[in-house]
Amino acid sequence: MRRLRAWFLLPGATIMAVLFFAPLLIVVLYSFLSRGAYGGVELPWTASSYTRVFDSLYLAILWRSIWVSALSTAICALLGFPLALYIARAGSNRTLLLNLVMLPFWTSFLIRIYAWMFLLRDTGLINSFLLAVHVIRQPLPLLFNTGAVILGLVYGYLPFMVLPLYATVEKLDPSLLDAAADLGASPAITVWKVIVPLSKPGILAGSLLVFIPCLGAYLTADLMGGGKSVMIGNVVQNQFTTSRDWPFGAAISLLLMAVALLVTRVIGRKGEQLL
């Protein structure tokens, strides 16, 4: 058995070693090198990229990314909770309703962002309509701002919140709700005092599943925020492409990863639990 198991682990372990850890190691090394004259990296070793990371400009962007992600996560939880509750009580339609939440996830993420751009642009459907019926004279600035980024993130990751929430709400014993009602709690009080506290594991799991991708979001910020709503992921991309400052990009990447890991630790789930 031992031999067979070793052979089975080999391809996966090789992929992780060569295509995950080796690249990560290179990023660590690069973060301590100097910027090359024509891009890339060169000697000498230096920690100057790290001192630049703590420049107030980049810390401000990091901070922005954190609160935009936190706000998106909170909105997802607020929007997702009643939906999960409704699906859990929908009887025989539950699977269908849950699949309907997950279905957009199976279509392209890029297309979902484009769908909102189509609605929100200056020449998009909403502005065109409002101009045509003469409600406005100038197009409303609906796209390319932080609000649009948050909308895009919520739209993109809402299914990730609903799924774990549904899993916990669905397991709640209905007699607990009857008991609360019997003891004189109104439906709203029952939700707030009984259902929400008992759904804590689902809320935490969902928050993690939404917060982590939001924090590293690149595409949503790039397309819906325009150049105006920069998040930390966009800074990383920019350093590796346009600015060609790889050591600095590498240092920010590691900072971003550190924040993601820290948040995961705080929310308190371990690898073995998730896998």
Partner: peptide
């Protein structure tokens, strides 16, 4: 687990550098 937590953009630039 770590690879799941790694932001996509970080995966991308590290593979590019590699």
């Amino acid at each position: 687990y770590l690879s799941l937590l790694t932001p996509e953009i970080v995966t991308g630039v590290s593979l590019l550098a590699f």
